[in-house]
Design a protein around this nucleic acid. Structure first.
Lengths: 187, 187
DNA sequence: TTAATAGCAAACATTTTGTTCTGTTTTATT
DNA sequence: AATAAAACAGAACAAAATGTTTGCTATTAA
């Protein structure tokens, strides 16, 4: 890919993210985006079919990073802390969020956060499902495993949303403690 | 309010709900709505300021019903089954959903379900918070109560979404069992 | 260096929005 | 039953947004 293409693509992503901080997704027009990114109209449509397409691509990029990083984490530490490792994957994820490399927090706290939350949960769901296969087979026979997987990923994203909307008063470690307090008894 | 007003308002709601089953919220135009509802353009704008306004009003109406019904339920039964009452509020809510009086299930399973899910969670959150005040003060000192409230409402809506997307294979009673299995240990 | 590619700007047809107008139908009241 | 008030329909409208096309320039990779 051309250097310019990457640069333009990045410029559009950045402009789009900034706009999401001030307006809802629905109120952002393509004109807003190309003005903010300072690219031509033709260029925008050369990169993305529609505004929705741009949204999808942005999500792919952002959550792709954070989840694959968490994947690596589970390979070395396991899904949960095992006594040796000090923190769970969830703490890792929260810390990653707090660092906010790519303004994920901005997207999750904007007016249209729902959209991103779904993408986030989908990614997370896959992470948890793959890590769960073959684990804890005997535990919690009252609840099917596929229910549990959704419960965990669902609770997590809802917690993150709650955290952000509340102004991020808790540290990732604190949140991790809470989360494990409500999840581990079930496992 | 005029008889006609109610009728027209209902017609618009119905048309809007039907449209949501086939198109995403973003792709539905006001023209679509007034065609489907068979009302004039002027009439639509006399009832609702914008399409977003229509959405808000619809949510208010739908979730208002289901939550106030649940409120009554908690007055007689308590938030959870207490041994005498056979089912929790959550089961009551699920049964209410399954009956699907006002096509809430349709809205929660449509392409734009996120929007409705947020409204649903907000309503639910209030229900749980009001019922929680002064209860279980000694329980779970590891986790603040305001965290718990969000955890419960969040888990619930995520479960409902999972239930619907999976084709509603479980009965409300079954789901209620699962849900209590993952929530009650924490209380 | 040069051919290919990426970009810009302007113009465009089309769609959607929200408003305004005129005239008709329905409702509530007497 | 007559009447005034309201709610409605339909059409026409300006303004805004979308997505495409055209002609031209700048950059890159070879």
């Amino acid at each position: 890919m051309d250097r310019r293409q990457k640069k333009t693509r990045a410029a559009i992503f950045t402009a789009f993210s900034s706009l999401l901080a001030e307006k809802s997704y629905g109120r952002i027009t393509v004109q807003d985006i190309i003005d903010a990114a300072d690219v031509g109209r033709t260029t925008f449509y050369a990169h993305f079919e529609t505004k929705d397409d741009l949204l999808r691509e942005l999500c792919k990029e952002l959550f792709g990073h954070i989840i694959s990083s968490a994947m690596d984490c589970t390979h070395t530490h396991g899904l949960y802390s095992d006594g040796r490792a000090p923190e769970s994957v969830f703490c890792h994820l929260l810390q990653h969020l707090e660092e906010n490399d790519n303004n994920i927090l901005g997207l999750l706290s904007c007016e249209s956060s729902d959209i991103f939350l779904r993408y986030f949960k989908d990614s997370l769901n896959e992470l948890i499902r793959t890590q769960f296969v073959g684990r804890d087979k005997s535990a919690s026979p009252a609840v099917p495993q596929y229910f549990l997987v959704n419960h965990i990923s669902g609770s997590f994203v809802e917690m993150v949303l709650w955290w952000i909307k509340g102004g991020r008063k808790q540290t990732p470690q604190e949140l991790d403690r809470y989360f494990r307090a409500v999840i581990e008894p079930v496992l």
